[in-house]
Design a protein around this nucleic acid. Structure first.
Lengths: 223, 223
DNA sequence: TTGTCAACTGTCAGCGGCTGACATTAGCCT
DNA sequence: AGGCTAATGTCAGCCGCTGACAGTTGACAA
């Protein structure tokens, strides 16, 4: 009844225990990402991470189910934002358009959320590690597929369809996902890592799908 | 000079050593797949595989770089066939059409090739294991992406383009890959595992992409 | 304040995938 | 037959990860 309950997650300070917990988790996360980005993911042992934070190895695995999970901690945050953005789209928009607007608009919110956990710069470098480390890339792609399944269901519901009867929801989402992966790849490979660059690439490529599928490439040149 | 050289791979019998080698590799492969499909991939230890064949654990890792590689041995074979089929397409076909015809036509050859290594039934069951085992699914998706990169280069060359300047090769291939993954998923989930079912699904879905992207779903119903 | 309870952490032992180094066996070739 | 080399076995060890148990420390009530 009194105001001392507070076992939720709203207040910024909470109890000492929870603050401590958050601090070790942050320390572990930072140490992990820093090591991943400097000496490489595979080359970094969990022991090294825990030594840097001065906790036991066992503690690491109580905060992160695996070494992998540490690498994907931030990306996990962004997913939620994107999915929410899709859900928030007005129902009258066509599926592909809803997806398109959702990505384009959600990035600002996402970056904001990221910075509250990890310096943006560190996150970018981590992303590069993910794309260049086979094991992490694989995990990333699998997660993408899970996300696509979720999106397909959302789209199906928007249109009042059954995902398992009508293939169209899964198809749009698959195409969308495919394009976004190309965007990611090119964006990471390029040198302009700004949001604007990303946004431009996204718009360009999504617009480019139609023409690219048409096949009369010899007659129309995109750029 | 004499006819006894034969250190290549043409003749069916070759030397005793090589026959033995092939036999152990086959034995390991079969034992592995059989165990994967019966008790699950994660639940199968490499020791169990080697015990079934009565070789040392070390020997397994000399034939397969990892437990994973054993699971993907057959799929690797099929990839080559598909890529070759794409390469063999006449240059006048539009990219997407070339890809489409390549898949549709290559399956027969592929299945033939598979049966020379593993009973087709075992392969099918293995495929189900791959799709339902997170670690394997992840690896499968990563390999798919690598394949897409290769295909993009082939397409680019066909059209006389530079992959890193013009995004269209990567885009078509990404879309194609996305659709094929949906096909795989639905095919495996269904109960008709025949080639014909697969072929029909592929044709249907590839045709469905255009309409699905359009977005006026309420007015046109596919099935 | 103090004592009790629960949460957090450390320690230890062990499994499974995987590797390098070295010894042993067995097919090949003269 | 005997030397050479490829194939295999053996052994020790790293690393990711887990269960079990014990110790410590914050939370909360009496």
């Amino acid at each position: 009844m009194s105001a001392t309950v507070n076992n939720g997650e709203e207040n910024g300070m909470e109890t000492l225990r929870e603050r401590k917990k958050a601090r070790t988790r942050d320390a572990l996360l930072h140490a992990a990402l820093e090591l991943f980005t400097t000496k490489g993911y595979e080359q970094t042992t969990v022991d090294e991470i825990t030594e840097a934070v001065d906790v036991s190895q066992r503690t690491f695995f109580r905060y992160f189910a695996s070494k992998e999970e540490a690498a994907f901690f931030v990306p996990r945050l962004t997913e939620t934002h994107f999915v929410e953005a899709v859900r928030a789209r007005p129902p009258h928009e066509a599926p592909l358009e809803a997806l398109r607007r959702a990505v384009l608009e959600s990035w600002d919110t996402i970056n904001e959320a990221i910075q509250q956990v990890v310096p943006l710069d560190l996150h970018m470098r981590t992303y590069r590690v993910i794309e260049s480390t086979p094991a992490l890339l694989a995990a990333h792609l699998r997660r993408s597929q899970e996300l696509e399944e979720e999106l397909a269901r959302i789209v199906a519901e928007r249109e009042g369809l059954d995902v398992d009867t009508d293939p169209r929801p899964r198809l749009v989402v698959a195409v969308f996902g495919g394009v976004m992966r190309v965007v990611e790849r090119m964006w990471i490979a390029g040198d302009d890592l700004s949001i604007e660059a990303m946004r431009e690439l996204t718009a360009d490529y999504l617009d480019g799908v139609g023409p690219a599928l048409a096949g009369n490439w010899r007659t129309s040149h995109t750029k």
